[in-house]
Write a protein that binds this DNA or RNA. Structure first.
Lengths: 245, 245
DNA sequence: CGGTGGATTGAGGTAGATCAACATGCGTGG
DNA sequence: CCACGCATGTTGATCTACCTCAATCCACCG
């Protein structure tokens, strides 16, 4: 059995969350970091640090669930596709996000890196055993899951009830907010995803995404820096246009 | 401190999950049931059984999170609205579903009963303490949250990438599947929600919902029994039309 | 019965999709 | 270091699925 030390206490005691974790190099609070210091020997032994290239598939829908991942660097995109190829992107994951934890035996969506990325990978059964022995860790993960659920709810509103402009404005503001929360650069804000991926996230087409971004640019609300970065020039107006995310 | 007996073991030992729980009358596996027998005295003492009328508000977006609920009878609808009144329904909850567990201090969505309903209500801090002491319960709730997340993902695909017909077909099949899993009648299948609520769930308008249902009826795929029940006549064709939910 | 709120049906409008042409920028190799 | 070629992105013209507006219809309630 592994130690049952409280994850929260442990992390609070460490106090230096801004420093990169010895295990995985992450700068954000996450499980990898909490495992630093060799307290959780068993999990430590079975955690693999992955170094991933661009456009690298972590798992696909239908694959058996063998691992749980904690992203520590880079961007990952989660998506589901219909038989005829229509794709819906569920979200863009940033450093600190967990992925791969699913209730059933098979993955229900695809996960692919957009950029070069690093992640910690845990064997699923070991990870579950760890959670059984650490109510705090389970509770922490439960809060993360609740946060994901709240994010999904906002995304459902975006997809079901917002106009094209509102969708793009919401997307930009949400990405900036989440990037900021992980201490990533927000001005200019990197857009590691293609127009096609923005379209599949917002439920629009690439043409509409391009047109709306163009309109926001001519309206001086944003500045496009190449195709893969934006500078947000008029916060409050963009916020207004987003229909309150 | 409360007892730390395993929720799963306890429920497995009881073996009579089909019997109504002494505490809340639920017939499905859920926490209320697990608490039966007085093992979790503290939680038991603080659980209130609620008897709710039709169209009764459990909580609204912005309310402080004071309680966690376990629905044991009836249907509840979760929704989020934009400032101008556009509404997106996130889901229809059935007996056995949890609601109200959120990471922050305020609710992010509205919860309202569609029918008369019963629910167990727990004080949030007590519930959290219970989870801290019961890794199994926390893990169980984590699995429920993962299931909700998978459901949300399917809903995002529906909202972002499906046609009106696919949305309605998916909605009907999903409702039937989930109703069946809770041993509710599926033929005919009750539709406790109005057309307006179906519209707000599928991201369509009431007129489109009505027209699509009408077309499915003339195509002999379904039979409408009044406005609030359907009989699914051609399963495989409806499945095909749903674009694989 | 008769009123009223939800549901259906019809006519016409529009946001965003589709189809098509063109621009741009980036990686590669000369 | 520059030229080339292909990816990705932009812009324009048209089309259509679904929305909007409006007029009934219907079922359930008193």
């Amino acid at each position: 059995m592994t130690s049952t030390a409280s994850l929260h206490e442990f992390c609070a005691r460490r106090g230096d969350l801004a420093a990169p974790c010895r295990l995985c190099g992450a700068r954000e609070f996450n499980l990898c970091q909490a495992l630093d210091g060799g307290q959780q020997v068993k999990l430590f032994a079975l955690a693999h640090r992955l170094q991933l290239g661009k456009r690298c598939r972590l798992f696909s829908a239908g694959d058996p669930v063998r691992y749980v991942y904690n992203l520590t660097e880079g961007t990952v995109c989660l998506s589901r596709s219909l038989a005829d190829g229509r794709r819906q992107i569920l979200g863009f994951l940033l450093p600190g996000d967990f992925l791969g934890f699913e209730p059933g035996e098979t993955h229900r969506c695809d996960a692919e890196t957009l950029t070069e990325a690093k992640a910690c990978r845990f064997e699923r059964p070991v990870f579950e055993e760890f959670l059984q022995d650490n109510a705090d860790a389970a509770l922490h993960l439960l809060r993360l899951a609740s946060t994901d659920l709240a994010q999904a709810a906002r995304h459902e509103v975006l997809l079901g009830r917002k106009t094209a402009t509102e969708r793009i404005a919401s997307f930009l503001l949400d990405l900036r907010q989440r990037s900021g929360a992980r201490h990533l650069r927000t001005q200019p804000l990197a857009l590691p995803m293609t127009r096609s991926e923005i379209a599949d996230y917002t439920g629009l087409t690439i043409e509409t995404v391009s047109r709306v971004l163009g309109r926001l640019r001519s309206g001086k609300l944003i500045e496009l820096i190449g195709a893969s970065a934006v500078r947000i020039l008029d916060d409050s107006e963009l916020e207004r246009l987003s229909g309150s995310a």
